[in-house]
Amino acid sequence: MQRLLVLFLVAILVVAVAEGMVRAFSFRIGPPPGWPTLEMDQKSEQLKARDDVGVLFIGSSSTSVGIDPSVVVANSTAIDSSYNAALPFGSLEVQRLWSQAVMSDKVSVDVVVVEISPPVMLYRSKDSVAIDMVGSNPYGRLTGRNPGILDRSSLVTYAPDLRDPVAALRWIMTGPPRPTLSDGQTPLCRPYQFPKEFRDLIVSDFAASAQDRRFVALDDLRSLIDGLSARRIVFLIFPVAERYFEADGRLLPSWERELAQGLVFARDRDIAVIDATSIPWPQKYFSDPLHLNPAGAERLSEFVAGALDSIESGEPSLYTDRAYAVDDCRER
């Protein structure tokens, strides 16, 4: 028994020393790329410093890296300011909590563009297996539901940099590769990219529970829209890479149904829709199936700017011409 005691004491000591060392040197370590809480902190600070925003984008990591506000402003005649407030892991629930936190009484917003994409329509932060694997997440931050010990451990927090030998060497030599947000102009310093297995886990998570979430997603969407205070709300149907489409370009059936719900909802509420999937999105514009690369972001931002101008000039809302199974998805 004494031997076991010594063994476990030594093991605990090793863990404590490792944790202490990471804490001591954490100022040299950059936070993991796309770390949601960091982005949330920075965006929160930037939004607090602004009185008004012409067009505010909210959504998930897809919008976070897929919309460049400076390109939107440069390509629009009607928009003079824009801010990308989308967050990685920004499910509808996260978007609702987040928009309440940053918009109410703090900043005046003219137009809110809400991302409607398969991940957003299917993903629920509350009960996802995938979200817990990354420890910290915006839902946890916004609701105070942080997983506790995992978030308090620097060893775990800085693990993504520590476990990549090249990155670890780089930050030891050159200091932290800290991502910066220049007032919403560049959402992240590099394209957001999930590890493949993590993406697949999310996708399988979606697929497994798509049936259950069918109408919950609509409830979340309703709550989000009801909580927004802006002159106009616009839905942006976000492109995803070919991999998640059938060969003929139609979305996979489960996802198509979710998007169709969003369209029906928009029609019922008279919300304008920008369907970015109505123009071709070759693979070259993606850094992974859910995220655009900088070239893709520029293309999407230009497209969105033009569409927003059309909407502002009073042209009919851009309902999609895609053959979603809309009639099957009326609110029940």
């Binding site: 010594v6 063994l7 030594v10 093991a11 090793v14 775990v156 693990a159 993504p160």
Partner: peptide, 25 residues
């Protein structure tokens, strides 16, 4: 020795804690 085993077990825990956050298959 218990100390060696403790060092090894502690090392396992540290390494697993660092890597467990990554996507597992």
């Amino acid at each position: 020795s218990a100390i060696k085993q403790g060092l090894l077990l502690g090392g396992f825990v540290v390494a697993v804690a660092m890597f467990a956050g990554a996507a597992s298959s």
